[in-house]
Design a binder for these strands. Sequence first.
DNA 1: ACAAGCAGTTTTTTT
DNA 2: AACTGCTTGT
Length: 688
Amino acid sequence: MARQFILQTDDDPTLDQMQIPYAEELNAQQLDVVTFGTGASLVVAGAGTGKTRTLIYRVAYLVESGVAPEQIVLLTFTRRAANEMLNRASGLLDGRCRRVRGGTFHAFCLRILKQYASKLGFPNNFTMLDASDSADVIDVVKTSSGAESKEKRFPRKRTIQSIISSARNKGRSIQDVVEVSYPQFVDFTPQIETIFEAYETYKKVHGLMDYDDLLLYTLKLFSQEPGVLREVASQNRHVLVDEFQDTNRAQAKLVKAFSSVFGNVMAVGDDAQSIYRFRGADFQNILSFPDEYVGTQILRLEHNYRSTQHILDLANHLLDSAKRKYEKRLFTDRAEGDLPALVPAPDDRFESRFVSQMILQFRDQGIPLTEMAVLFRNGHNSYDLEVELNKKNIPFVKFGGLKLAEAAHVKDILAHLKVVENPQDAIAWNRILQLLEGVGPKTAGRIIDWVESNGGDQFILEERPFSASYIGSLRALFSTLRAVKKGEASCAEQLEIILEYYAPILRRVYYEDYPKREQDLEHFVGLSHTFTDRGNMLSSLALDPIELTAIDQQPEADDEPPLVLSTIHSAKGLEFKVVFLIHALDGVIPSGYSVGDAEAVEEELRLLYVAVTRAADQLFISYPMVQFRQFDGQYFANPSRFLANISSDLLEPCTLVEQTENVLPASDTIQQIADGSPNDAGTANLPF
DNA sequence: ACAAGCAGTTTTTTT
DNA sequence: AACTGCTTGT
C-alpha cells in the first residue's frame, strides 16, 4: 500500500462549533456514521433504524465541515427519495444542501452521457427507450434479422427483452440466463443471441438508449476515456449511496469509478431488504464491499425507532425462517402495542370493505390518512379496493402499477415529441405512423426507410411515393411536426400543438374510453409546465415516471392529504403508523413465478419483511379465501406459505363477521366479533 | 399485399 | 389491458 499523508484541517469547525447539535439529536451509532471522516465506509442499517435521517444529517455535517455541496453526490433509488432527503437536509441546515448533486444511478449517468455521447458514437440528442419501447425494437429486429422461428413456442418480445436485460444487468451471457431462468427456451438460444446483436446495432444506428445502456455506456466511457473519468470523479469529493443492497454489478462498478479520485464512499444498506434480484441486484455487493475498498470501516445501525416490539418480533421471526441467515436482530424501546393481525376475508369485496372501514375508523381516532398505507405485491391487487375507496370518498395516491408515461395515449403524444427531438428514433416514428388510418407495420416501415434516406427529418413531403389513401394524413402529421420543431414554443405549447392534431386520432383509436384518456392528456399538459426543454422533459419522464393516479389527485390540492396505496417495492424506505398488507396469498407473495427457484422464494420472503417493517404501530395482514378466475370460476386460495404456522403470539388470527343486527338501516358494515372465549388461541377481536 | 377487426390467451416487482 | 393469431375486407 502506498503511504498516506494526512492533511491537518485545524481551521475546520469542530462538532461543538456547528449549528446542529449532532450529539444531542443522534444516538451513538448514528453519530459515528454522521461524523465519519474520509475513506470508505459501509453502513449496515436494519429497517427503521433511522437510516434516512442519518444520511440527511451526514449531508448537513459534511456541508458544515466545509465541503462544497456540489462536491457531494447522493445516489438514491428514486428521485422522490433524493428530493425528500435534500429538502429535509435544507430544513435542517440551509438552502446550501439543495445544491448537493444526486438522484438515481440512471439519471446521474444520463447527465454524464448527454455531455459525452459523441465519444461513444451517439448523437447527444439520443432518446430513451422504456421497457416496452425496447420490446418494440426487438419486434422490429426479430423479423429483419430473420431470427424469428415459426415455431409456436418462440418467446414473446417482452420475454426476449427481459432475457437480454437480465444478461446485461448480471454481466452474464444470454446462454447462461436462458439456461438458468428460461429453460423452456433453451432451443432458441442462438436466435435470441442473434436478436441481441441486432438489437444493440439498431440502437446505435438510431440514437437510442435503454435503461441498461445508461449504466453500461457510462462504464464504457470511463474505461475508454480515462480523462473523462478523472474529470467526473474529481467533482465527487464525497459519494453517498443509499439502498446499496439493491445495486447491481454495473452500479457497484460505477460507485467505484465515481469515487476513484477522492476515495470517500459511504454505502448504506441492509442485506435483509434486498428485493431487486430480478433486475440484477446482488446483495453480495454489500458483502464484498470491504474487499473492494481496502480499509473500509463497517458501521452499524441497529436501534429501531419505528415499530412496536410486536411488529419487530414478527419481522425477526420472518428473517429466522430464511435459509440464508441474516445476522440481524432489531430491538426497540417502544411499547408493545397490539399484535399484528392476520385477517382472512371471505373474498376480495370483504377484504376491501374491511380495509376501508378500518381506515375510516383510524381516521376518526385522529390518525391522518397519509400516516396509513395499504401495501400489496402486484399493482393490480388493489383494483377492488380502489373502487371501494372511491365509493367511500377516501382520497388516495397509488405508487407502483401503471405509470403515466406508460399509458398508450401518453406514449402516443410523447412519440411525436421524440421524433422531433431525434428524427432517427425509428421506434417513435413507427408508433406515430401506425396511428394513421391505412398505415400498418409494412407501410410504416417503408415510410421510415424513406425518411431515413431522403432527409425526411425536416418533415417536408415533396415527392409522393405514397398511396393516396393515407397521403392526406401523412401531410397533416408532417405539418404538425414542423410546427412543433419550428417555434421557440415551451414544452406545454409544443404538447398543445400535438394534442390538437392528435385529438381526432385518440377518439378513433380509443373510441371505447377516450374521455378518460383526454382528461389524462390535459393533466399531462398542465404538468409539463415544470419542464424547461423538450429533451429534458423526455428523459425525465423516462427515468422518473409520474404515477398515473397521482395526477387525478392534483386538481383538488387543498383536499385532505391522501391515503397511500403502494406495491411493496415502491414502499421501500417509507414508514406509516398503520399498514395493511392485502392479498397475502400463496402464489401472490411468494409470487407463483418464484416457486421452484429457492433464491427467488427467499427474495419474496424479504419482500414480506420489507412490508412488515413499514409499520410503526399497527399491522393488518389480510387475504381473500376465495379467488375468482376467468374460466375455472371460484377456487379456494391459501394464505402465504410464509404466514402458515406462525405462532399466534406473533401474529394474531382474527375473523370477520358480517353485522347481523341492523343498527343503521343501510348498514353493510363488517363487524368484528369475538369467536369463542376471549383468550382462545384461535381468534381475537379487532378494536372496534 | 396489407390493414383492421375479432377472439382467445397471458399478465410480477422497476430504472 | 395488451399481445398473438386468425379471418375478413380493401
